[in-house]
């Protein structure tokens, strides 16, 4: 799922400097799960903002809402009435949700309250780690289910590099070397021969977002 982290309060305060009445909107999906923008975090952030502004001497009125999924136009539409009452919206949904609101409310500024960080997995409760970069051309079948694009600092397709030491990465010493993980996994599966197969270079300029905005169209589903 999408993982995000709340922005520093001082940064958010800066965005909202010239507004006295805002809507703080969370999202009931991914950011609730990673505890960055669910109803609980919305309440906390709203309270913190109100107090910080009170202390500055410029009270802020912050309304709160948490639609089920901010990235759907219908859910965004549910906020219409509330948005009419405010000068700006602070969204603690992921970057997608922020843009959905921005598209939906052309007259109201929408600010991000979180940094959308990565697509990740829960390692243990409270610890999340990057697993996918949505590169658009999955090669997990060749690497034993461990993604070198997301997990190797150098994004090597044919690793490991010379910097892999005792299973750790030379760029980030506390992180596991992705290619060590791939080796161990293939070893466990009895498919070590796959390490010898050369994965050809990717045409990033054509296959990934380097070629511009990506879009999925399912003609059969269109209404």
């Amino acid at each position: 799922m999408i993982k995000a982290e709340q922005k520093p309060l001082e940064e958010i305060l800066l965005y909202l400097k010239s507004y006295d009445r805002i809507l703080l909107s969370g999202c009931g999906a991914c950011v609730t799960v990673c505890q960055a923008g669910g109803e609980k975090e919305v309440g906390l952030l709203a309270s913190a903002l109100r107090m910080a502004r009170m202390k500055m001497g410029t009270p802020l009125e912050a309304l709160e809402a948490t639609p089920a999924r901010q990235c759907e136009p219908e859910f965004a539409a549910e906020l219409s009435e509330t948005v009419e009452k405010v000068e700006a919206v602070l969204s603690v949904a992921c970057g997608v949700g922020v843009q959905t609101l921005a598209r939906h409310f052309p007259k109201t500024p929408v600010f991000p309250g979180v940094n959308t960080t990565f697509l990740g997995e829960t390692v243990t409760h409270g610890v999340w780690e990057e697993r996918c970069q949505a590169c658009g051309n999955c090669i997990l079948e060749r690497t034993g289910g461990v993604c070198p694009v997301a997990r190797c600092a150098k994004q090597l397709f044919n690793g490991p590099c010379g910097g892999s030491s005792k299973g750790k990465c030379e760029i980030k010493r506390e992180a596991d070397c992705a290619w060590q993980l791939i080796y161990d996994r293939l070893n466990g599966l009895g498919q070590l021969y796959r390490m010898e197969e050369i994965i050809p270079a990717r045409r990033w300029g054509v296959e990934s977002r380097d070629s511009g905005l990506r879009r999925i169209v399912r003609e059969d589903l269109k209404v």
């Binding site: 309060l9 107090m51 202390k55």
Partner: peptide, 8 residues
């Protein structure tokens, strides 16, 4: 942590 940011 929040209090610190709020300035309390």
């Amino acid at each position: 942590r929040l209090l610190e940011k709020i300035g309390l």
